[in-house]
Design a protein around this nucleic acid. Structure first.
Lengths: 152, 152
DNA sequence: GTTACTGCAAACTTTTTGCACGACA
DNA sequence: TGTCGTGCAAAAAGTTTGCAGTAAC
């Protein structure tokens, strides 16, 4: 599912503003990586950001995509999300949200829900350390995989 | 925190029984990898399982640790958990549980709590696909890191 | 005109795989 | 004794880094 045009524009605006504020240069390549990651909530891995951007900037290198994503993550503009399989995935959503992960194809979708945001942290956890974020991760077989399919 | 002796014994018993039931050989190396992973709830990565086992079986190779963990994961006896950083981590706990992750050192601890187990899946998620497991992931700075320290 | 960014290539880390020997059942 | 598992080494996959040229400010 694509992110709405308005939300994409908002994300691109806030990311480019933040980069400019930090005195970083807004190169053609950076701008296109920002646009690519802002336009989706499918948590693409580096390779798929690379493919998407290359359609518009055929000369961009994979390293630049890696470096740009690392820059965005360091500024907190994009989150690198943990995955069980090979490649790391990136998420441009900034507001608190949760995830639905398909155990068959590895796809990952945002879930926005106030009840989940309100989950209480158990007392025992305070003893382990501070709690800054709480994420609920739901796993199952996504509709597309279920349709395609026979058993795993 | 180490897992209690009773729980460790229980885990080793259930893992070795499952391996035997599947007609797999219970080699010296396998048994020691099973013991190592059963005795901790610190979600070790492959390298640290390797170090632990090597103290008892100095000739074991890293590949064997990888292969044994893959075997255990394939049988559902151990879970491979996602991490943002480099290496994959492994978890021998079998009952439903949640995680506390330190954003500074990457350590990961089990959180067992009935209220978290009871979190409701929002209706909207059903449209994405089936939901088999729900995990709550709490992130913050663990006590050890906070004590050590100055800012990130 | 500076200085930061890019592209290329090579290094590095983590994980997987092919093969021959050795050990479990 | 037959077969599965191990150890070694090499390969694969993902990611990072050094360097020289290029482009943003």
């Amino acid at each position: 599912m694509a992110v709405s045009r308005d939300e994409t524009v908002r994300r691109v605006g806030s990311m480019t503003a933040a980069l400019r504020d930090e005195g970083l240069r807004l190169t053609h390549q950076r701008l296109e990586v920002v646009r690519e990651i802002a336009a989706t909530d499918e948590h693409p891995d580096v390779e798929s950001v690379y493919r998407g951007v290359r359609a518009r900037v055929p000369t961009i290198s994979l390293d630049t995509v890696y470096r740009t994503l690392a820059t965005l993550v360091a500024r907190g503009l994009v989150v690198r999300v943990a995955t069980t399989e090979g490649a790391a995935r990136y998420d441009a959503a900034t507001s608190p949200h949760h995830h639905y992960v398909c155990t068959r194809c590895g796809s990952m979708r945002d879930v926005v829900d106030a009840a989940l945001d309100a989950v209480d942290v158990p007392d025992g956890v305070r003893a382990l350390g501070s709690v800054e974020t709480v994420e609920v991760r739901m796993r199952g077989v996504c509709a597309a995989c279920a349709e395609k399919g026979v058993l795993p």
